[in-house]
Design a protein around this nucleic acid. Structure first.
Length: 435
DNA sequence: TGGTATT
């Protein structure tokens, strides 16, 4: 009755007054119809404005799709008709993401590895702008079954030379998942952190260390645009995150008027934290619609102010919308910092090694701790891949050696709990003696 | 004493 390779089509943008008998003539001109069903609501029986259509012949389906899809608009509709294979017809996922490849592997090498499991339509090793392999690839098979076979046979099957863990073979992200991944990346870049994760005990001592540092900066403030940049950065960070460790030193260096008298930091007691809104107005951050501080909004999962207005958005998207709304400035700030990186270099003398970090410190907390000393290019806490636990050390890179030195001066030996931070220049790659 | 990556 129908061919084995027949395709079920989804028909969209159908006026709700058209039933099967009305639609049949439209589609019959491309071939004999095997089945045509208007899609109705399961409970109310209401016409949903779309249908499934299967021709006896595959060829008829292709002709209909070609002739009709997006080509004409049925009476009463404001968008053109949709004629395309139904989701259920997809040959399924056939594209794989392959991770933990050795960085020296070429497209051809990867193809050879995956060929035994099916016909490969496409095979690309991902590379950075400089052409260096990112150690991962996309492999597209002709069918889902082949892709599945490759996963079964290869995932975790071996550890390639130069890879830190066994081969990863999984279905590539869908469009939707890519969006989510992007959001997560933005979120982590912005350093959305919990103020509760900071130690109260560390707070005052750290504040003092920063105040000392800022006193040094202030002495040369009138000659040094760098100091101004640092101060502006801290204000922005504080505006986003008034409860964070950054807030107090900001307050201490923020001049109370536009006079050109340098703030007398060393002689001034550390003032109380300003109310969040005062900080916000300083940096011109828009006030959230419900009167919460920006940071409260950021830290509040599921109580997002936009939730009531846009119930259709998924929570992640809501969070993302909120973040974009309130953190545009921080985002610009980070972009600005990253622009300092001359694409490949991380000059010696700019990178510091930090040991004895509190176990719970993350990248963003370490970033915040070192932001006052200059333009931070990157901040990375080392994490055990197996346990996901911090190894209590990390790296911070600045855009100039003076900032690195300032950070070392202020933070080496800095006490947190029972431990003292060890802050030194990062050892160059080729030096392998421990001290 | 560094880099687990999604066209």
């Amino acid at each position: 009755m129908k061919e084995a390779d027949a395709i079920k089509l989804f028909i969209g943008q159908i006026p709700r007054n058209l039933e099967e008998k009305d639609l049949k003539p439209i589609f019959e001109q491309f071939g004999k119809i095997y089945e045509l069903t208007v899609i109705k609501d399961k409970y109310t029986g209401m016409h949903k404005g779309c249908a499934f259509l299967t021709y006896c012949a595959r060829e008829s389906a292709l002709k209909a799709q070609n002739a009709l899809h997006e080509q004409k608009t049925l009476p009463g509709m404001n968008r053109p008709i949709q004629v395309k294979p139904a989701d259920s017809e997809g040959r399924g996922d056939r594209k794989l993401f392959v991770g933990m490849l050795g960085k020296q592997l070429s497209d051809t090498d990867v193809k050879k590895m995956f060929e035994p499991f099916g016909s490969i339509e496409e095979c690309t090793v991902l590379r950075g702008p400089d052409g260096a392999s990112k150690g991962c690839a996309f492999v597209k098979y002709q069918s889902n079954a082949e892709a599945q076979a490759a996963i079964s046979a290869l995932h975790g099957s071996r550890t390639l030379p130069g890879a830190s863990s066994s081969l990863v073979v999984k279905f590539a992200d869908t469009e939707k998942e890519r969006g989510i991944r992007r959001m997560q990346q933005v979120a982590s870049q912005l350093g959305v952190i919990s103020p509760m994760s900071l130690h109260l005990g560390a707070y005052n001592a750290y504040t003092q260390a920063l105040v000392q540092q800022q006193a040094l900066v202030a002495q040369s403030a009138y000659l040094s645009p760098v100091a101004t940049v640092a101060a502006v950065q801290m204000q922005q960070l504080a505006a986003l995150n008034p409860n964070s460790i950054i807030a107090t030193p900001i307050a201490s260096i923020t001049p109370s008027s536009g006079t050109n008298t340098p703030p007398a930091i060393a002689a001034t007691p550390v003032p109380a934290l300003p109310p969040p809104m005062a900080v916000n107005s300083y940096s011109q951050l828009p006030a959230p619609p419900n009167g919460q501080s920006a940071s409260e909004t950021l830290y509040t999962n599921g109580v997002h102010p936009y939730q009531a207005q846009s119930p259709a958005l998924d929570p992640l998207q809501q969070a993302y919308t909120g973040m974009q709304h309130y953190t545009g400035e921080a985002s610009e700030l980070l972009k600005c910092n990253l622009n300092f990186v001359d694409s490949e270099e991380c000059p010696e003398g700019c990178n510091i090694f930090i040991y004895h970090l509190p176990q719970e410190f993350t990248d963003s907390e370490m970033l915040q701790m070192f932001l006052p000393f200059g333009n931070v290019i990157s901040a990375k806490v080392f994490v055990d891949r197996a346990t996901n636990q911090s190894k209590c050390f990390g790296f911070v890179s600045f855009d100039n050696p003076a900032s690195a030195q300032a950070a070392i001066q202020s933070m080496n030996g800095f006490q947190i709990g029972m431990k003292r931070l060890k802050v030194q220049l990062k050892r160059p790659k080729d030096a392998n003696r421990p001290y």
